[in-house]
């Protein structure tokens, strides 16, 4: 049941417990209980909204920063990752395999703001060996949902056999 709930709300967190109960053939209480459990276990960590800021008046700049770090004795990457992800400019932070260690995605109001963050906050950290900043030019798809193109209209004929 939990997996069914997660799959259903993955793309639409607005579904109510009552609706989920009908869709999944369960009861409202059962759904609420499961969701609560998953919230407590951090399976469900929040209910954010997928916003395409490019369509909104005040523009934002997003950058993906490739960060190489020196892992610290006894704490591996976790400590340094935490020091980085705690900055509120950081929206996403992954430890990755490959040519660098941390993929850090940050959002700012301007390129200057991001440049300042990298120069003043990120690079000076002792464990950070190097940073390569990639500015995002256009967002096509996030969270499995396309961000570009016009809202898709139902092109089917209204009544068909």
């Amino acid at each position: 049941m939990k997996e069914k709930i997660l799959k259903a709300i993955d793309k639409n967190s607005k579904l109510t417990a009552k609706e989920l109960a009908m869709m999944l053939g369960s009861t409202e209480e059962e759904i609420e209980k499961n969701i609560k459990e998953m919230e407590e276990n951090h399976v469900i960590c929040g209910y954010p909204t997928l916003i395409n800021w490019d369509c909104f008046e005040n523009e934002r700049v997003t950058a993906i920063i490739e960060v190489k770090v020196t892992p610290q004795r006894g704490q591996g990457f976790d400590k340094i990752a935490e020091r980085i992800y705690r900055f509120e400019e950081v929206t996403t932070c992954y430890l990755v395999s490959g040519n660098y260690d941390l993929a850090v995605i940050i959002e700012g109001r301007s390129m200057r703001e991001i440049a300042n963050f990298v120069a003043e906050k990120l690079s000076p950290l002792e464990a950070v060996v190097s940073c390569a900043t990639n500015f995002v030019l256009r967002k096509y798809k996030e969270h499995g949902m396309p961000l570009v193109g016009e809202a898709k209209e139902d092109e089917r004929m209204l009544i068909t056999p």
Partner: peptide
Amino acid sequence: VSEMKDAISLGVGE
């Protein structure tokens, strides 16, 4: 139906 503007259709077979 096709003369009706902003009708919601639950009439399709595809």
